[in-house]
Design a protein around this nucleic acid. Structure first.
Lengths: 233, 233
DNA sequence: AAATAACAATGTTTTAAAGCACAAATTTAC
DNA sequence: GTAAATTTGTGCTTTAAAACATTGTTATTT
């Protein structure tokens, strides 16, 4: 693998998708009042039970949001890509975090102190509305996931996970390889199954020419079929 | 059963929990611009795929929010009690409803037209913030449910459902009977299991003196044990 | 009051997925 | 560069829960 150069993070105005609704004063304030943090691969960013202190924005890299369930079996709730916010839900509800977040790749994160974030939410109606939209969207996704993960069979759940990853992270230059390389365990934790079953089912998909595998690189060959499998359950 | 008298609905200012953040103008406007609807037991209020037209507030009765999954197997997402809002998430995301809502008891519902609701959200920051809190809270619950429903075993899931129902609807005068009488099928759809398994597991709980049953009336006898079962998975 | 339908209870069979064990292949650490 | 550790791949066994079948019970309907 080519050695990764540590790139300088982009300025916050290029990263924050809600920048457009901020007032000039708020913009200047945020430029001066945010911090930049780098996390190594597999480093924990915050964990369940922690008191939330900052709203966070992923500048670069990839992170997973997950919960530890029965017997410390992990369930990945969602995967984030650059520009997405996290860690703020708990600030709004004024409760400890109910998820863990960790970097699946080296990641750079902008942090804004909780009180500053709340203050803008309470003073800038358009800003508040944007986050209302974001949470409304996330809630829809979460509710849909309840049904998908509980009712679909293994093949359907894994197919769905692969399609979601492709939609979320896109593909490499070849137009097929999903642009995120996850361990089989992470794929399993996304799809609510054991690692063995993720491996087994991936092998089956490969035998059926639905995907092609090269280590952690997964290529979707027959997307139609994958969609069908995902829909059937 | 005693014949139910159809009571006059309370005024909207006594039902809406966000009334305090409205301006006098908004209050007057809403008093004049909401409609009252009655739904019979088992009547569908809105369904998946419908375009959302109103934000709704449950004045009296009980409703269930559910999704139809694989093979039209239903999954109850949440149960609402008077004062709670629904049907507005889809308005905010500007998408069709992704859940069905139906009355599990005769229910009275206040409706506010979507454009009016959006207009208040966009002009009244405190109002917007209240709904932000509500969605943030719901999202936390939904994420937790993903783990509970996928990882816990049948007994754990049913125990959890019973505890949630008790917490949500409270108990009768006897201090133990849960104040909602659901069909076994609804209990099953809440807890992600088949009706047979809900029946079987309830019987087991009754044999173990954890609950007592009288038709649809469920009495929690040993709450400690139920909590333990729910936590163990 | 009889007929029908809906709901509840239980036993039996089947099956999807977990659990386990072990070997091979990679990755990471020193 | 080598050893250690982790990850991946397979086969086999076990098990939890679904599916099915049957019967009893309680509500509705006419």
């Amino acid at each position: 693998m080519a050695k990764k150069t540590i790139s300088t993070p982009r300025p916050i105005d290029k990263v924050m998708t809600v920048w457009d609704v901020l007032t000039p004063d708020e913009r200047q304030f945020l430029r001066n009042n945010h911090t930049v943090h780098r996390f190594k691969k597999n480093e924990l960013i915050h964990c369940e039970g922690d008191t939330p202190t900052h709203m966070m924005i992923l500048e670069s890299g990839k992170v997973k949001v997950f919960k530890e369930g029965v017997g410390s079996r992990a369930q990945i709730i969602r995967m984030l890509k650059p520009g997405e916010h996290f860690g703020y839900r708990a600030i709004i509800t004024n409760q400890p975090h109910n998820t863990n977040v960790s970097a699946v790749e080296p990641s750079t994160i902008f942090m804004i102190k909780a009180d500053i974030f709340i203050s803008i939410l309470k003073h800038n109606n358009a800003f508040c509305y944007r986050f209302l939209e974001e949470l409304a969207c996330d809630l829809g996704v979460s509710d849909a996931r309840i049904v998908n993960l509980t009712q679909k069979h293994i093949r359907g759940r894994l197919a769905e996970a692969l399609l979601t990853l492709k939609k979320n992270y896109g593909v490499e230059a070849d137009g097929a390889t999903i642009s995120i390389y996850l361990a089989r365990e992470d794929l399993a934790n996304l799809s609510n199954m054991t690692t063995s079953n993720a491996i087994r089912t991936l092998s089956n998909f490969a035998n059926e020419q639905i995907i092609a595998m090269d280590g952690r690189k997964l290529k979707i060959i027959d997307e139609e079929k994958l969609i069908r499998i995902s829909k059937m359950g």
